[in-house]
């Protein structure tokens, strides 16, 4: 067997599976999206139809807010954990990254336990103020849920980048008289920018497409994935659901593509 043929044989099953269960379905999705009463104009509905547009805007705001908050949180925590050695450090890292594997539905449940009708925050608030605080089912709960599944991922990326920093550059800055704050502002944070771009994009894309958390919380805020789901199952409007999900796919894919060319590296979007 020639080596060319062997390599082709190695790749063939992958190509078949990818074609049958990914490329073909996506192509069909695009076609079906244009098959509704409005034809290809359905693709513009995400911008023109007020209901969809509001949902898109709300989703983007939520995703951006999640990304910003996550980056800040993860940078503070990641720097601390990577830069300090203390007993139980590896356990702490394990705890911080544990939610990585949790599906969105379970994250939703975690938020219910925290801020739901029988939630911990509510109990604490009642003990302190006499008022029960319940926000799991409002935008605040959704935001908290998105933070919950975003923080672990971004922490991992930040920690990996912090580990790669060259300590001599920092020492050079300190030798030149830079204090701790100046070192962070002028040396450490700039060096982490590629990690911010990469993990921020993944964070944004994941937040845009997240479905399970919103589903569990049954939030009043209509995020785009929930709208798509509703169109598909309740309204049986396949064409509109397809058009909207193609639009959503383009937004998330574009976010990742832009960040990748900005960071100049290919980054793995972890689960």
């Amino acid at each position: 067997m020639s080596s060319r043929m062997f390599v082709a044989l190695c790749l063939a099953p992958l190509l078949i599976v990818a074609a049958a269960f990914f490329v073909l379905p996506l192509a069909r999705l695009v076609v079906v999206g244009a098959s509704g009463p409005d034809g290809a104009a359905a693709y513009l509905a995400i911008l023109t139809e007020p209901r969809y547009r509001e949902s898109l805007v709300a989703t983007v705001i939520l995703a951006v807010a999640t990304t910003v908050a996550t980056l800040i949180t993860a940078t503070i925590v990641g720097l601390f954990v990577q830069r300090h050695d203390f007993p139980g450090r590896s356990v702490l890292v394990a705890l911080l990254t544990f939610p990585l594997a949790l599906p969105g539905v379970v994250v939703g449940f975690m938020i219910i336990l925290l801020a739901g009708r029988q939630g911990l925050i509510g109990e604490v608030a009642r003990a302190l103020t006499g008022q029960r605080l319940v926000f799991a089912y409002a935008a605040g709960g959704l935001f908290l849920g998105y933070l919950y599944f975003s923080i672990p991922r971004v922490i991992l990326t930040i920690m990996a980048s912090v580990e790669k920093l060259d300590p001599q550059v920092e020492e050079a800055a300190r030798a030149l008289g830079a204090g701790a704050w100046a070192v962070h502002r002028d040396v450490i944070l700039p060096a982490l920018v590629p990690a911010f771009i990469a993990s921020g994009a993944i964070c944004f894309a994941t937040a845009m497409g997240a479905f399970g958390t919103a589903f569990t919380l049954a939030t009043r805020t209509d995020v785009l994935p929930m709208v798509i789901y509703t169109e598909f199952t309740l309204n049986a409007n396949f064409a509109m659901a397809a058009a909207l999900s193609v639009g959503l796919g383009i937004v998330t894919w574009a976010a990742l593509a832009v960040s990748r060319s900005a960071a100049g590296t290919s980054v793995a979007a972890a689960g």
Partner: peptide
Amino acid sequence: VIEEIITLPLAIPGLAIALGMIITY
């Protein structure tokens, strides 16, 4: 190019992929 295509499922929401599969099969 192949790698790019097969990693696309990471960039596209599962909902969209699932819809495509349901429409197709």
